[in-house]
Amino acid sequence: MARVVVVHGIGHEWSGSALMGRDVVPALRDGVRQGSGLRLDDDDVACAFYGDVFFEEGTRGLGVPPWDEHDVEEGFEAELLMVWWEAAARAEPGVPAPDEPGTRAFPGAGWLLSQRMRSALDALSGSRFFGAYSDRMMVFALKQVRRYMNEPPVWQAARARVAEEIGDDTRVVVAHSLGSVVAYEALCEHPEWPVTDFVTLGSPLGLSLVFNRLSPLPEAGKGAWPGNVRRWTNITDPGDVVAVVHELAPRFGAVVDESLDNGLKPHSLPRYLTAKKTGRAIAEGLM
């Protein structure tokens, strides 16, 4: 089995382990080599793919429904969209903040939920990360996060995909975006795994909406330590809107929080993987 397992985030729904590995494995090998001088073989790295668990059997070919502001559910989805909007406004001067005149952000202003969600989608369409997303894909992302956090069949299937890739030789788990939540919960669930190093990239684990729903549940404001892990390195681009809370140490304890600049693609998995900081963190678990 592979010594390094990569767990993807949102955006790989129509992919698979082998197809995803075509981009992910070379990027990770480059990062490790540049950051540490260590040379990995293709067989040293595996990708845990779970993107298809969000589709009903037989519906995968139909694409994403034409979702818009009317399809954002009140509660978790609406709250998460507002968090993304606020984070994008803080990170990018060109994105209007929710409390600016005309943004229709709050119920007190007399606007319906759908009108507030329309303003949020419009604002995010001008951001670096979400600018490449259509309305339907942004709503799809919201629904994926909500479903993973709230639907047992979804999180059980996703964690099982991670478990399929972990073997006796696996020492490092690298997880991006929503995949960091999947990997974290899987590691907590399996303290017998030989994984010693956990590397999270663009992770939303520190966001209260996610943190307070983790399994196991946090106690006294502290999240559980992930299984047998000895070192946890969390790497975030300050402009990464999905990560929101950039430092995980206050929530989880002895996490080493690092920052880097991914340029115009702050949430890009390949850019995170090719960074020297990421390569050094991965290599540390292999030496």
Rank of each mutant, 00 (worst) to 15 (best):
V210K: 02
H267N: 06
F55C: 01
V95K: 13
E219N: 05
A224E: 09
L113E: 15
G131Q: 03
A18P: 01
V95L: 12
S203A: 15
E151T: 10
G63Y: 10
T196G: 04
S119N: 07
L209G: 02
L217W: 04
R39L: 06
G94T: 11
G37Q: 09
E100L: 12
D41S: 15
W111Y: 13
S125Q: 13
S125H: 15
R128L: 10
V83A: 15
Q115L: 08
H267K: 04
V95E: 05
V172F: 06
V245P: 07
R230P: 03
V174M: 05
N262V: 08
Q115T: 10
K276G: 02
L286G: 06
P191G: 00
R3N: 02
D257N: 15
L201P: 09
N228E: 00
K276W: 04
S268C: 05
R60E: 05
Y272S: 03
C47K: 00
V64E: 02
E92M: 05
L28D: 01
E79M: 15
G37P: 10
E189K: 10
A88P: 05
V139D: 12
L248W: 02
P96F: 04
V173S: 05
F54K: 11
P216G: 14
H176Y: 00
Q144T: 12
D23W: 05
D23N: 13
G58P: 11
D23L: 13
G202L: 07
E185K: 00
L40K: 04
H12E: 13
T278H: 01
E73D: 14
R90W: 11
E100R: 12
F140N: 09
A141N: 15
A163H: 01
T236I: 10
T200H: 03
R251T: 02
D197T: 14
E164A: 13
V244C: 07
A46V: 01
S127G: 04
F76M: 14
A89G: 08
R159D: 00
D43H: 12
V182N: 06
G131C: 04
M1D: 11
T278F: 11
L40S: 07
A87K: 06
V83I: 13
Q156V: 11
D41G: 15
E74S: 15
P226M: 01
L214Y: 06
E13A: 14
P152Q: 09
A2Q: 06
V139P: 02
E77W: 07
R104M: 12
M149G: 01
S119K: 09
H8E: 14
H8Q: 15
L124I: 02
V172D: 05
R271S: 02
A175T: 01
S15Y: 06
W67M: 08
A243Y: 07
G58V: 00
Y272H: 11
G75M: 14
V162N: 00
L113N: 15
E284Y: 11
P270V: 00
N212P: 03
E13T: 12
A123Q: 12
N234W: 01
D197V: 05
A27K: 09
V53Y: 02
S268F: 11
D122G: 02
P152W: 06
S36H: 12
V72Y: 08
